[in-house]
C-alpha cells in the first residue's frame, strides 16, 4: 500500500475511534471532573445499579427492541422476497416505499407517526414505539436480505423443486438456510437501531414509556458526567459483543451454506 494511503487509513480510524476510546477510558476515572484523570475507579458503574429510573428505562428499551426487531425481521424478509420477484406490479413505487424510511429525517418520521396515532385514537406507550421502530427498521432488514437473495444460486431451488419438493419444503429446507445469515444480521441491525433511537421514540412514546436514549438525552443536555460515560461504555461493550457474535455466526453459516452438497 502507498504510504499516503496508509496515513489516510490510520487518520480515518483514529478519528472514528479516538472519541469513543476517550469516553471509555474516562468512565473509569475516579474524579468527577470528566476531563481530568484522577486515578482508576469503578465507582460510577456501581452508581448506575442504584439508579432505578435508569434500570427501568433499560428494561423498556430491551422490550421494545426485541419486539420491534422480531416484527421488522418478518416484515422486512417478506418485503425482500416481494422485491426479489421478476414480476412485481408497481415496482418503482413499492421499492421506494421500502427504501424511503432509511433516509427519511427522523423528525419527520416521528412527527408523522405521532399524528397518525393521535388521529386513530391509539394511546401512546410501548406499543406505539414498537410499531414506529418496526416500520423504520424493516427497511434495513429488507435491504440486507434482498442482497443475499440476489446472490443465492437459483439452480439449487430449481433442483429441489424438480426432485418433487413442494414450495413450502423448498423454502424451509433450501431457501431459508441459505438466507439465514442475512436474516440474523437484519434482526441484529433492527435491534441495535431500535435501541439507539432517540428522536422517533421521543415523538411516539407516552407517559411511563421512557427509553434508555430518552433518559440519556435528558441527562446529556445537562452536561458531561462520569455516570453517562459509564452507561455509554456498557452500551458500546454490548453492541461490540453483539456485532462480533453476529459476524462469527454469519461467517460459519456462510461457509456451511457454501459447501456444495
Amino acid at each position: 500500500m502507498h504510504p499516503l494511503a496508509r496515513i489516510a487509513l490510520a487518520l480515518g480510524l483514529a478519528f472514528l475511534y479516538g472519541p469513543i476510546l476517550l469516553l471509555v477510558v474516562y468512565s473509569f476515572n475516579e474524579s468527577r471532573l470528566v476531563t481530568v484523570w484522577g486515578g482508576f475507579s469503578t465507582r460510577w458503574y456501581a452508581a448506575l445499579l442504584a439508579d432505578s429510573a435508569l434500570v427501568a428505562a433499560t428494561t423498556v428499551t430491551l422490550k421494545v427492541a426485541l419486539a420491534s426487531a422480531s416484527l421488522a425481521t418478518v416484515l422486512g424478509t417478506l418485503a425482500a422476497f416481494a422485491l426479489d420477484r421478476r414480476r412485481l406490479p408497481g415496482r418503482p413505487l413499492l421499492s421506494g416505499l421500502v427504501y424511503a424510511p432509511m433516509v427519511m429525517p427522523e423528525v419527520i418520521t416521528g412527527l408523522s407517526l405521532l399524528l397518525l396515532f393521535v388521529g386513530l385514537g391509539i394511546d401512546r406507550g410501548l406499543v406505539t414505539i414498537v410499531i414506529a421502530h418496526a416500520t423504520f427498521t424493516l427497511s434495513f432488514v429488507a435491504v440486507v436480505v434482498q442482497a443475499r437473495l440476489r446472490s443465492i444460486d437459483r439452480s439449487l431451488l430449481e433442483a429441489a423443486a424438480d426432485l418433487g419438493a413442494p414450495p413450502e419444503q423448498v423454502f424451509f429446507t433450501v431457501t431459508l438456510p441459505l438466507i439465514a445469515p442475512a436474516v440474523i444480521a437484519g434482526f441484529l441491525l433492527a435491534f441495535t437501531l431500535s435501541m439507539d433511537d432517540l428522536v422517533i421514540a421521543s415523538f411516539v412514546s407516552g407517559p411511563g414509556a421512557t427509553t434508555l436514549p430518552m433518559r440519556l438525552y435528558s441527562q446529556v443536555r445537562l452536561g458531561v458526567t462520569p455516570e453517562i460515560n459509564a452507561i455509554s461504555t456498557l452500551l458500546i461493550a454490548a453492541v461490540s459483543l453483539g456485532v462480533l457474535a453476529a459476524s462469527l455466526i454469519a461467517a460459519r453459516r456462510g461457509r456451511a451454506a457454501g459447501v456444495p452438497v
Binding site: 472519541p19 469513543i20 469516553l23 441491525l189 441495535t192 435501541m195 439507539d196 432517540l198 436514549p213 440519556l216 438525552y217 446529556v220 458531561v224 453517562i228 455509554s232 452500551l235 458500546i236 453492541v239 461490540s240 453483539g242 456485532v243
Partner: peptide, 9 residues
C-alpha cells in the same frame, strides 16, 4: 452500530 447519541455526546 454504536449509539449515535453516545458518539455525538
Amino acid at each position: 452500530w454504536t449509539s449515535f447519541l453516545i458518539r455525538v455526546y
